[in-house]
Amino acid sequence: MMPSLPIWQFDLPLLVLVVLFAVVALSIRNLMGAAIVFGAYSFMMCLIWAGMGAVDVAFTEAAVGAGVSTVFIVSTIYNTSATMKRRPGGMAFKLFIGVVVTVAGGFLLSALPDFPDWGDPNSPVNATVAPYYITHSIPDTHVPNLVTSVLADYRGFDTLLETVVVFIACIGIYSILRIEPARTSIDETDEEIAAPASYDPTDSLIVRQASRFMVPFMQLFALYVIAHGHYSPGGGFQGGVILGASLILLAVSFDLKFLLSRWREKSLMLLVATGVGLYAAVGLACLFMGGNFLDYGTLDAVLPGKQDMARSHGILLVEIGVGITVMFSMLAIHINLASNGRLERGL
């Protein structure tokens, strides 16, 4: 007997909490606090999604939304200022926007009666295209994790483009923020108000030793996530983000100099491009083998196994490409944001 409550009981408090955190994150005047609350908000979201069976999404949100995003916001605030000035006035404008937004919300809710029942397995979303993936993933691609097969094969083009998005973000943030030493003198107009360093984590022995201990395990886990993405939650994105986070942890607990002495900026940026390049090259190889772009099945001539295994291996290859790009772009974005583009010292 199904419970009579129309939604899962566990979700109800979580959903309310999410709204609460959102409101708090936006109303706190200390920006650092807002960033932390926003991180908590993301974690709540992860739980909700995991509860709905979207483990991969939850995994990604935990790594990306709660983890990396929060770090990005914190490093920005570290470089600037955490306090918001109280400014009078502007209420009329805020109220006006409030009214507009409320009207928009009402408009959105007006479609509610039209929606299929909650969790209905026969709703159009669940019954139109989706069943194909569930029934054909194994024969087509030999990948039990449906999310991985849809992500990297059926809709592999989306994923390529998504990697490109990360790539753009990386080179974009580099272009916006990076001040190369040789150029410091040229860049006259937009200089030079640096916030004082308010907190220096580099002198904490405990933090250093703890992270030194954790980083290898994180990286091992990340490699597992990438390689085992065919069979368990995870894949290139999640693994890449964790790998990136492990290096970010190093950068935070030691300092940027320490990190950059091991990973030079040039190699970081080249690796970011390499990942996308790998993905595109796999697709291109399919093209040259006579198939359509990203049709890994045609790679059976060079990869072991039949078509389905070729697809499975193709998926692994592109996941590795995704992992490389995501890992190094997260790192590159972080070092630029954390040091305000100078790559000298920073969070």
């Binding site: 979207a54 991969d56 999404v57 990604t60 949100e61 990306v64 939304g65 990396v68 995003s69 990005f72 916001i73 979303v125 669940n126 295209v129 989706a130 993936y133 569930i134 449906l146 999310v147 097969s149 849809v150 992500l151 809709r155 989306d158 994923t159 998504e162 998005v165 990360v166 753009i168 973000a169 974009g172 943030i173 916006i176 994105f237 995501v326 974005i333 944001l337």
Partner: peptide
């Protein structure tokens, strides 16, 4: 349903890219 999930994986990544920018 795997389809909505992978769509949202994409959306999350796009989101973090936009946020970073």
């Amino acid at each position: 349903n795997p389809l909505t999930q992978i769509l949202m994986l994409t959306a999350i990544v796009v989101g973090v890219a936009t946020l970073g920018m």
